[in-house]
Design a protein around this nucleic acid. Structure first.
Length: 816
RNA sequence: GCCCCUUUAGCCCAAUGGCAGAGGCAGACGACUUAAAAUCGUCACAGUGUGGGUUCGAGUCCCACAAGGGGCACCA
């Protein structure tokens, strides 16, 4: 043996095994007749924004722990990867450099792919998809048309969120605190005709089915989704309007306070407000127009400030309160939202904080109808409310609905915060919407056999954001004949939100290259849903909600037999540096490639797993990749020290070490399965320490138990540090493929203890401990405890009023 | 304003209601070495954010407060 072979050289090891694995393909999940049970482990696919960074390194290290674990447990694990490659960054980079977004995108994909290979991700490289490939996005179009057929994709004209910098519309979910989530510009409103997916039709199911994920998804994500969908129960109440044929319906969660309504407010930017104003005096019309102009100038940032003063304008019109016929003045204000409920509310200033502020600002009357001085919005006996007097909230709500239901003036209903999903984007780098607009036939779906509608080349197109889709400039592409009547017609020039791409990609991995179907229905039955999904919490609302929606639609269409896409979810935390997220402006970016060059792939990977619970953030300044490298070297040396032959019978090995090995085998699985990777690594370290001691001590390197422990260590290490593990496996005389070396079960007979340490407390304080047989009876244990000198001293003159014992571990005397 | 999470040694983190310490980092000491590095070994360090409560017994369960982090927010 040369000196070289006795030294742990992580870089040599990397170079050695990578090509071997390329041949071996240990993670190929598509082998016909593979007898292993199936498991689907999925990491959220990356956006190809450049090379992999520390965040990717964490995500894929942790996803790999899970995926590799199930392989070691004897499962056929499908662990695919792809790229979410449509989207604005590619387009913006293309504009900046005057290039086609394709070049930038596919160069980055190649870069990331090569980095993933070096990082030893356990992906099935025969299942790869790229959403900007025609072979992928044509099925986006196909799905869009399936949705369209069922009325789940539709076009409407309404006020939408608009990013003036990206020059495109934004989904509700993409506006964060009034800012565009991508570029942080202040979002504005614009009235446009746009395509929507009818998510609201699934609102109840999207909310209720979260219960089935309880315990398997982080509770934080569940509550964020519940919050976002925001169902509230209440009633729609209809008010007649003086001088108007049509009544106005409002939504309220407190119909019981109807007797306290003293005015009505409609959203200033609603059609209703404009119409009511136009039917009023010229004076009012002018005041309203002034107000509306002001409202439109203000952005969501100002709007969202809760301490903002209430503003509004009286419309000179009156509504009739259905419970008592009272005339209620109608005001327009921006504190009522046009797109929630009906865009109009009944104002109960005595029992709603916002209505109260408005009433105060404009000196409008207040009427108390619930007797509760402590909490104006709280419950209490109703007063000044005719037939509701004396009732509490719950009964009063039921009663008032019952009273008004007969005349059709009220009905129990519910409302959602969730809005339909706006999917049109006025940008180039996305899936073209497969619709043709014909003057005679209207919207005509592109026939399925004419798909895909290929994205035209960017050459000659002006990609700069200008408020309409750059595709409009592709004249040859836009102008087509109507599939229906043959007349001259035009393609829809918008592209789809890229969240459409990621809403079903987990199914596409089943047949990523199929030309004939989006995904094979039978394979979906076999593999899906995803057993374990791994990704960042940043997608807690958007992506997960949309994917859940898609799954439910596909279920209803009959293409899948499940209606939740991701059975278990793990959200890993972020990698920080010195307490904050890495960013150029902070200048605290840690380059992954430098870490890999300095410490090696394995050390970085195991550091990610060992840093703490996976859902916690990792501050790179707090962890020690060089410490990890030290551990790996220490583990590696144990394998190098083993002198027994492979295949030796372990039974005769050192008992103490065998016990340590099998204790590890017992504990390791449950730890990994409950995502306690850091503890799992700690257990490995423990076993390595025991192994080291055995090699250097009585047992010696030839002891079969030493080999047994080293082989278990190699397999355990393979979850975190695949290169080191493979090399250990090789040193131990096995052919390449430690990743497939199924973990043995713990031998329980080795774990049986004959004695244990019993502890004795007096009044809950530890006083003594001694070794006892595990079979000691409660009585004997107490007797033994009482015989202890330390214990009797602690009891002293006191009287034992109670003795609690749990044989063989524990006794407590309560002494007075 | 509403909801959620976190708080254990200098640091990162463990601990089915039952001995506060599994593991690591940083540190001290020793062995090996001419010396150093590497390696191997030994050791010290907190009573669990604060105040109450439940319990024979609380880091763990309950209540209040504080600090830090996150989500939602004029949603009727």
């Amino acid at each position: 043996m040369t000196e070289q072979e006795n030294e742990y050289d992580v870089f040599a090891i990397q170079d050695r095994w990578l090509p071997v694995w390329d041949e071996l393909k240990p993670f190929n999940s598509g082998v016909e007749g593979d007898p292993r049970p199936k498991k689907y482990v999925l990491d959220m696919f990356p956006y190809p924004s450049g090379d992999l960074h520390m965040g990717h390194a964490e995500a894929y290290a942790l996803g790999d722990v899970i995926s590799r674990y199930w392989v070691l447990r004897g499962y056929n694990v499908m662990h695919p990867i792809g790229w979410d490659s449509f989207g604005l960054p590619a387009e913006n980079a293309a504009i900046k450099r005057g290039l086609d977004p394709r070049g930038w995108t596919y160069d980055n994909i190649a870069q990331q792919r090569s980095s993933m290979r070096r990082y030893a991700c356990s992906f099935d490289w025969d299942r790869v998809l790229v959403t900007s490939d025609q072979i992928y996005y044509r099925w986006n179009q196909w799905l869009f048309l399936e949705f369209y057929k069922r009325g789940l994709a539709y076009r409407k004209n309404s006020a939408v969120n608009w990013c003036p910098s990206c020059q495109t519309v934004l989904a509700n979910e993409q506006v964060v605190q009034g800012l565009c989530e991508r570029c942080d510009s202040v979002a504005t409103k614009k009235t446009l005709t746009q395509w929507y997916f009818k998510v609201t039709e699934y609102a109840d199911r999207l909310l209720d089915d979260l219960d089935t994920l309880e315990g398997n998804w982080p509770s934080k994500v569940l509550s964020m989704q519940r919050n976002w969908i925001g169902r509230s129960y209440g009633a729609e109440v209809t008010f007649d309007i003086e001088g108007r044929n049509e009544p106005v319906t409002v939504f309220t969660t407190r119909p019981d306070t109807l007797f306290g309504a003293t005015f009505m407010v409609v959203a200033a930017d609603s059609d209703l407000a404009a119409e009511l104003a136009s039917g009023s005096t010229p004076d009012v019309r002018m005041q309203f127009q002034d107000y509306l102009d002001k409202v439109k100038q203000s952005n969501d940032i100002e709007r969202l400030a809760t301490d903002r003063e209430k503003t509004g304008v009286f419309l000179g019109r009156y509504a009739i309160n259905p419970v008592n016929g009272e005339k209620l003045p109608i005001w327009a204000s921006d504190y009522v939202l046009a797109d929630y409920g009906t865009g109009a509310i009944m104002a109960v200033p005595a029992h709603d904080l916002r209505d109260g502020e408005f009433a105060k600002a404009f000196d409008l009357p207040l009427r108390v109808v619930v007797d509760n001085e402590d909490d104006i919005a709280g419950d209490g006996p109703h007063i000044n409310s005719g037939p509701l007097d004396g009732l509490y909230k719950k009964d009063a709500i039921a009663k008032v609905i019952e009273l008004l239901e007969a005349s059709g003036k009220a009905k129990a209903t519910k409302n959602f915060r969730l809005r339909d999903w706006l999917i049109s984007r006025q940008r180039y780098w996305g899936t073209p919407i497969p619709i043709i607009h014909c003057d005679a036939c209207g919207e005509v779906p592109v026939p399925a056999d004419s798909l895909p509608v290929a994205l035209p080349s960017a050459e000659g197109l002006d990609l700069k954001p200008k408020g309409t889709s750059p595709l409009g400039g592709a004249t040859d592409w836009v102008n087509v004949s109507c599939p229906n009547c043959g007349a001259a017609a035009k393609r829809d020039t918008d592209t789809m939100d890229t969240f459409v791409d990621s809403s079903w990609y987990f199914l596409r991995f089943l047949s990523p290259n199929s030309e004939t179907e989006a995904f094979p229905v039978q394979a979906a039955k076999d593999w899906a849903p995803v057993d374990q999904y791994v990704g960042g919490v940043t997608h807690a609302i958007l992506h997960l909600l949309y994917a859940r929606f898609f799954t439910k639609v596909l279920h209803d269409i009959g293409l899948v037999d499940f209606d939740e896409p991701f059975t278990r979810l793990l959200n890993q935390g972020m990698v920080l540096m010195n307490g904050s997220a890495m960013s150029k402006s902070r200048g605290n970016i840690v380059a992954l490639s430098e870490q890999l060059d300095e410490h090696g792939v394995d050390a970085v990977r195991i550091t990610m797993a060992f840093a703490g619970p996976p859902e916690d953030d990792i501050d790179w300044a707090d962890v020690s990749p060089s410490g990890s490298a030290k551990f790996l070297a220490r583990a590696w040396r144990t394998a190098n020290d083993v002198t027994s032959e492979a295949g030796v019978d372990f039974a005769t090995g050192n008992k103490e070490l065998r016990k340590a090995t099998h204790t590890f085998l017992r504990d390791f699985g449950p730890l990994i399965e409950s995502f306690k990777f850091n503890v799992g690594v700690a257990k490995l370290m423990e076993l390595v320490n025991a192994l080291r001691k055995a090699i250097d001590g009585e047992a010696g390197p030839l002891d079969p138990a030493v080999r047994e422990a080293a082989e278990v260590v190699a397999r355990g290490v393979s979850l975190f540090a695949p290169y080191t593990a493979e090399d250990m496996w090789n040193k131990l005389g096995h052919p390449a493929g430690v990743a497939l070396a199924v973990l043995p079960e713990a031998d329980e007979t080795l774990l049986v203890e004959s004695t244990t340490i019993a502890v004795v407390q007096v009044n809950g304080k530890l006083r003594d401990k001694f070794e006892v047989s595990v079979e000691i009876t409660k009585e004997d244990l107490i007797a033994k405890a009482l015989a202890s000198e330390v214990v009797s001293r602690a009891i002293g003159d006191g009287e034992i009023v109670q003795q609690i014992a749990s044989a063989p571990k524990f006794v407590n005397f309560v002494v007075k």
